[in-house]
Design a protein around this nucleic acid. Structure first.
Lengths: 155, 155
DNA sequence: TATTTACAGGACCGGTTCGGTCCGATATTC
DNA sequence: GAATATCGGACCGAACCGGTCCTGTAAATA
């Protein structure tokens, strides 16, 4: 199963939670953990990473905490994923060129690069704001991709 | 990094290799291993899985081997991925509903379902034939997605 | 029929990654 | 100075993964 690591999954939930709070308000790791129902040490660890990657700004000391570094509209899904588990790439040769011995003779490589790009572009159309808005049918950019979301066939 | 397992990666290379051979011709696991330069035991293991999942047909005994169960045009990327590492789903709740305790209160869930669908659709547009054709600029379906592949920005 | 070839299925193992916890240091507020 | 809260990193156990090997069975050939 192609999947995000649980850390990334949690991280996006945490970001969405912060995006749903008052704009610019800082919340401590403990608060966020309590309100999202996720284990506190994990939340702390994830928020630290997100701050280090520049998606959150941290305030130390009493009354400290974390807040979004930018507005939710300016934070894209690939950024969030990239911050927590590195750049998006389905194949190793996408992220680490030269690591694969078959790279020179591999005829599948170029198509995969394009496939990766399609996935990246698709995810790039979606912002944290789209995830944070609770209402249904909120993700507008999906339609702009020209993908018909009506016929949902199980893969 | 969102990535396919190496097994899946190899598997797609193997499928593309078979697709590039004469139509309907069967090749033994050892042959495929030799011609692709991948370790023989691994190739054998992967081909077995692909046969079990119905993407390849196997012929036992002397002069046996594997051949594609369908034409390359009829085999999609999600099928290949699904056969080797299960259904495509970025989040656990996509594939295993109910496994996440926060599912009821999670506001991020529905958007993710749509995101998953976008990725699935994007991959579904690409067939094994697209991967197997060695020429550049071969992936036509990408354009049908409405994705502009011209401006490739690094994610 | 005997022999050879090659897949089928599963057991097995070592290495790596991952989720998760915890601690000392540092910075800020009151 | 005391309390609060992040920062950075060490640490551990469990799960997963890549890879190997062995036994059984089916098909082709002589």
């Amino acid at each position: 199963m192609i999947k995000l690591s649980r850390i990334t999954d949690y991280g996006i939930v945490l970001l969405a939670h912060l995006a749903g709070s008052k704009d610019g308000s800082t919340q401590s790791a403990r608060e966020v953990a309590r309100e999202t129902g996720l284990p506190a040490p994990v939340v702390s660890k994830i928020l630290k990473s997100l701050a280090r990657e520049g998606l959150l700004v941290s305030h130390r000391g009493a009354k400290g905490g974390y807040s979004l570094a930018r507005s939710p509209e300016e934070i894209s899904v690939p950024e969030m994923i990239g911050a927590l588990e590195g750049p998006i790439g389905l194949t190793q040769c996408t992220v680490h060129p030269g690591a694969c011995a078959q790279e020179a003779t591999c005829h599948v490589r170029e198509p995969w690069q394009q496939i990766n790009q399609v996935v990246r572009d698709a995810l790039g159309e979606i912002s944290l704001a789209d995830l944070a808005t609770p209402a249904a049918g909120s993700i507008v950019p999906l339609k702009s991709l020209g993908v018909d979301t009506a016929n949902l066939t199980e893969a």
